[in-house]
Design a protein around this nucleic acid. Structure first.
Length: 195
DNA sequence: GTACTGATACTCT
DNA sequence: GAGTATCAGTACT
Protein backbone atom coordinates (compact mmCIF):
# COMPACT_ATOMS: atom_id res chain seq x y z
CA UNK A 1 0.00 0.00 0.00
CA UNK A 2 1.20 3.43 -0.89
CA UNK A 3 0.05 6.84 0.27
CA UNK A 4 -1.46 8.89 -2.53
CA UNK A 5 0.66 11.88 -3.37
CA UNK A 6 -0.30 15.44 -4.09
CA UNK A 7 -0.32 14.95 -7.85
CA UNK A 8 -3.15 12.41 -7.55
CA UNK A 9 -5.39 15.14 -6.16
CA UNK A 10 -4.15 17.86 -8.47
CA UNK A 11 -6.45 16.89 -11.30
CA UNK A 12 -10.00 17.51 -12.38
CA UNK A 13 -12.41 16.93 -9.49
CA UNK A 14 -14.54 14.50 -11.43
CA UNK A 15 -11.56 12.28 -12.28
CA UNK A 16 -10.31 12.28 -8.71
CA UNK A 17 -13.79 11.45 -7.39
CA UNK A 18 -13.97 8.44 -9.65
CA UNK A 19 -10.46 7.23 -8.95
CA UNK A 20 -10.84 7.52 -5.19
CA UNK A 21 -13.21 4.55 -5.29
CA UNK A 22 -11.54 1.46 -3.88
CA UNK A 23 -8.83 3.48 -2.12
CA UNK A 24 -8.21 3.10 1.61
CA UNK A 25 -8.83 5.95 4.04
CA UNK A 26 -6.64 5.72 7.14
CA UNK A 27 -6.95 7.65 10.40
CA UNK A 28 -4.21 7.04 12.95
CA UNK A 29 -5.41 7.25 16.53
CA UNK A 30 -3.65 6.47 19.81
CA UNK A 31 -6.06 3.57 20.24
CA UNK A 32 -5.11 2.12 16.87
CA UNK A 33 -5.69 2.61 13.19
CA UNK A 34 -9.08 3.15 11.65
CA UNK A 35 -9.24 2.16 8.01
CA UNK A 36 -11.95 1.81 5.43
CA UNK A 37 -12.35 1.40 1.71
CA UNK A 38 -13.95 4.29 -0.15
CA UNK A 39 -17.03 3.03 -1.96
CA UNK A 40 -18.97 6.22 -2.73
CA UNK A 41 -17.95 9.77 -3.65
CA UNK A 42 -19.41 12.97 -5.06
CA UNK A 43 -17.66 15.72 -7.00
CA UNK A 44 -18.20 19.39 -6.18
CA UNK A 45 -16.89 22.23 -8.28
CA UNK A 46 -16.99 25.98 -7.83
CA UNK A 47 -18.26 28.11 -10.65
CA UNK A 48 -21.34 26.78 -12.34
CA UNK A 49 -22.12 24.27 -9.62
CA UNK A 50 -25.00 25.68 -7.57
CA UNK A 51 -24.83 22.85 -5.05
CA UNK A 52 -21.25 23.58 -4.19
CA UNK A 53 -20.34 25.79 -1.28
CA UNK A 54 -17.79 27.45 -3.51
CA UNK A 55 -20.30 28.54 -6.16
CA UNK A 56 -20.95 31.89 -4.52
CA UNK A 57 -17.31 32.77 -4.17
CA UNK A 58 -14.73 32.39 -1.50
CA UNK A 59 -15.76 32.66 2.13
CA UNK A 60 -13.91 31.88 5.35
CA UNK A 61 -15.74 28.55 5.56
CA UNK A 62 -14.95 27.22 2.12
CA UNK A 63 -11.54 28.78 1.63
CA UNK A 64 -9.89 25.36 1.88
CA UNK A 65 -11.61 24.36 -1.36
CA UNK A 66 -9.81 27.17 -3.15
CA UNK A 67 -6.44 26.16 -1.79
CA UNK A 68 -3.98 23.50 -2.91
CA UNK A 69 -5.16 19.89 -3.40
CA UNK A 70 -4.66 16.96 -1.06
CA UNK A 71 -6.11 18.65 2.01
CA UNK A 72 -9.16 17.80 4.09
CA UNK A 73 -12.20 20.03 3.89
CA UNK A 74 -14.40 19.20 6.84
CA UNK A 75 -17.71 20.99 6.96
CA UNK A 76 -20.33 21.08 9.70
CA UNK A 77 -23.96 21.11 8.64
CA UNK A 78 -27.51 20.39 9.73
CA UNK A 79 -26.51 21.40 13.22
CA UNK A 80 -25.10 18.01 14.09
CA UNK A 81 -23.11 16.44 11.30
CA UNK A 82 -19.65 16.70 9.87
CA UNK A 83 -18.87 15.95 6.24
CA UNK A 84 -15.46 14.91 5.01
CA UNK A 85 -14.16 16.16 1.67
CA UNK A 86 -10.88 15.93 -0.16
CA UNK A 87 -9.72 19.13 -1.85
CA UNK A 88 -8.94 18.59 -5.52
CA UNK A 89 -7.70 20.48 -8.55
CA UNK A 90 -5.00 23.12 -8.68
CA UNK A 91 -4.28 25.77 -6.10
CA UNK A 92 -6.73 28.60 -6.69
CA UNK A 93 -9.31 26.41 -8.45
CA UNK A 94 -12.20 25.46 -6.17
CA UNK A 95 -13.04 21.78 -6.08
CA UNK A 96 -13.59 18.97 -3.61
CA UNK A 97 -14.71 15.39 -3.47
CA UNK A 98 -17.22 14.43 -0.81
CA UNK A 99 -16.59 11.01 0.67
CA UNK A 100 -20.09 9.62 1.06
CA UNK A 101 -19.46 6.12 2.33
CA UNK A 102 -16.82 3.60 3.33
CA UNK A 103 -16.48 -0.08 3.89
CA UNK A 104 -15.03 -0.54 7.41
CA UNK A 105 -11.80 -2.55 7.57
CA UNK A 106 -9.66 -1.99 10.68
CA UNK A 107 -10.86 -0.61 14.00
CA UNK A 108 -14.41 -1.87 13.60
CA UNK A 109 -14.87 -2.32 17.34
CA UNK A 110 -13.93 1.28 17.95
CA UNK A 111 -16.44 2.38 15.31
CA UNK A 112 -19.24 0.38 16.92
CA UNK A 113 -18.39 2.05 20.19
CA UNK A 114 -18.47 5.50 18.61
CA UNK A 115 -21.62 4.97 16.60
CA UNK A 116 -23.74 2.85 18.92
CA UNK A 117 -25.29 0.83 16.12
CA UNK A 118 -25.50 -2.94 15.88
CA UNK A 119 -25.02 -3.73 12.24
CA UNK A 120 -21.77 -3.41 10.34
CA UNK A 121 -23.39 -1.98 7.28
CA UNK A 122 -24.73 1.01 9.22
CA UNK A 123 -21.34 2.05 10.55
CA UNK A 124 -20.17 4.16 7.65
CA UNK A 125 -22.84 4.09 4.93
CA UNK A 126 -23.35 7.85 4.87
CA UNK A 127 -21.21 10.98 4.87
CA UNK A 128 -22.02 12.03 8.43
CA UNK A 129 -21.81 8.48 9.72
CA UNK A 130 -18.31 7.88 8.51
CA UNK A 131 -17.01 11.08 10.10
CA UNK A 132 -18.47 9.99 13.41
CA UNK A 133 -17.10 6.47 13.08
CA UNK A 134 -13.68 7.79 12.05
CA UNK A 135 -13.55 10.46 14.74
CA UNK A 136 -13.24 13.21 12.15
CA UNK A 137 -14.38 16.69 13.16
CA UNK A 138 -13.89 20.35 12.44
CA UNK A 139 -10.41 20.30 13.94
CA UNK A 140 -9.30 18.26 10.92
CA UNK A 141 -10.35 20.99 8.50
CA UNK A 142 -7.36 21.92 6.36
CA UNK A 143 -5.34 18.87 7.40
CA UNK A 144 -2.71 17.67 4.94
CA UNK A 145 -3.79 14.29 3.60
CA UNK A 146 -0.29 13.38 2.56
CA UNK A 147 0.77 13.66 6.21
CA UNK A 148 0.87 11.23 9.10
CA UNK A 149 -2.51 11.50 10.76
CA UNK A 150 -5.12 11.07 8.06
CA UNK A 151 -4.20 9.86 4.60
CA UNK A 152 -5.45 7.79 1.68
CA UNK A 153 -3.68 4.72 0.34
CA UNK A 154 -3.69 2.89 -2.90
CA UNK A 155 -5.03 -0.62 -2.73
CA UNK A 156 -3.98 -3.56 -4.86
CA UNK A 157 -7.46 -4.96 -5.27
CA UNK A 158 -9.18 -3.98 -8.45
CA UNK A 159 -12.38 -2.04 -8.35
CA UNK A 160 -15.18 -3.89 -10.08
CA UNK A 161 -18.12 -2.03 -11.53
CA UNK A 162 -18.32 1.71 -11.02
CA UNK A 163 -21.72 3.33 -11.32
CA UNK A 164 -22.34 7.00 -12.07
CA UNK A 165 -25.45 8.69 -10.72
CA UNK A 166 -26.89 12.08 -9.81
CA UNK A 167 -25.86 13.53 -6.47
CA UNK A 168 -27.94 13.16 -3.33
CA UNK A 169 -29.35 15.38 -0.62
CA UNK A 170 -29.09 18.70 -2.41
CA UNK A 171 -31.75 21.04 -3.72
CA UNK A 172 -30.07 22.33 -6.86
CA UNK A 173 -27.68 20.99 -9.43
CA UNK A 174 -29.08 17.49 -9.42
CA UNK A 175 -28.92 17.08 -13.15
CA UNK A 176 -25.21 16.52 -13.45
CA UNK A 177 -23.85 13.03 -13.00
CA UNK A 178 -21.22 13.66 -10.39
CA UNK A 179 -21.68 10.80 -7.94
CA UNK A 180 -19.74 7.58 -8.22
CA UNK A 181 -20.00 4.34 -6.32
CA UNK A 182 -18.96 0.71 -6.44
CA UNK A 183 -21.80 -1.34 -7.73
CA UNK A 184 -21.36 -4.45 -5.58
CA UNK A 185 -20.79 -2.70 -2.30
CA UNK A 186 -23.20 -3.19 0.58
CA UNK A 187 -22.01 0.06 2.10
CA UNK A 188 -23.28 2.55 -0.46
CA UNK A 189 -25.73 4.97 1.14
CA UNK A 190 -28.20 4.91 -1.69
CA UNK A 191 -28.14 3.24 -5.05
CA UNK A 192 -29.58 4.73 -8.15
CA UNK A 193 -32.84 3.39 -9.46
CA UNK A 194 -32.47 0.95 -12.29
CA UNK A 195 -31.78 2.53 -15.61
C1' DG B 1 -40.36 -2.76 2.76
C1' DT B 2 -40.82 2.87 2.02
C1' DA B 3 -42.06 7.83 3.63
C1' DC B 4 -42.08 11.52 6.49
C1' DT B 5 -40.43 14.48 10.30
C1' DG B 6 -37.75 16.65 13.98
C1' DA B 7 -33.29 17.62 16.00
C1' DT B 8 -29.56 20.93 15.95
C1' DA B 9 -25.74 24.87 15.48
C1' DC B 10 -23.13 27.07 12.30
C1' DT B 11 -22.49 30.19 8.14
C1' DC B 12 -23.74 33.65 5.00
C1' DT B 13 -27.23 37.39 3.56
C1' DG C 1 -33.01 35.27 10.09
C1' DA C 2 -33.04 31.61 6.79
C1' DG C 3 -31.03 27.69 4.84
C1' DT C 4 -28.23 23.61 5.09
C1' DA C 5 -23.53 18.26 0.61
C1' DT C 6 -27.89 14.49 7.24
C1' DC C 7 -29.47 10.84 10.50
C1' DA C 8 -32.53 8.11 13.31
C1' DG C 9 -36.89 7.16 14.78
C1' DT C 10 -41.72 6.61 14.00
C1' DA C 11 -45.71 5.62 11.24
C1' DC C 12 -47.45 3.84 7.84
C1' DT C 13 -48.20 0.23 3.35
Amino acid sequence: MEILKRDFYERNTKIVARELLGKILVHRLPEGNLTGKIVETEAYFGNGDPASHASRGKTPRNSVMFGPPGYAYVYFNYGMHYLFNVVTDKDGVPGATLIRSLEPLEGVNFMFQRRGVKELKFLTNGPAKLTQAFEINISHNGLDLTGEEIFICNDETKVSDIVSAPRIGISTGKDEILRFYIKDSQFVSKKAVDV
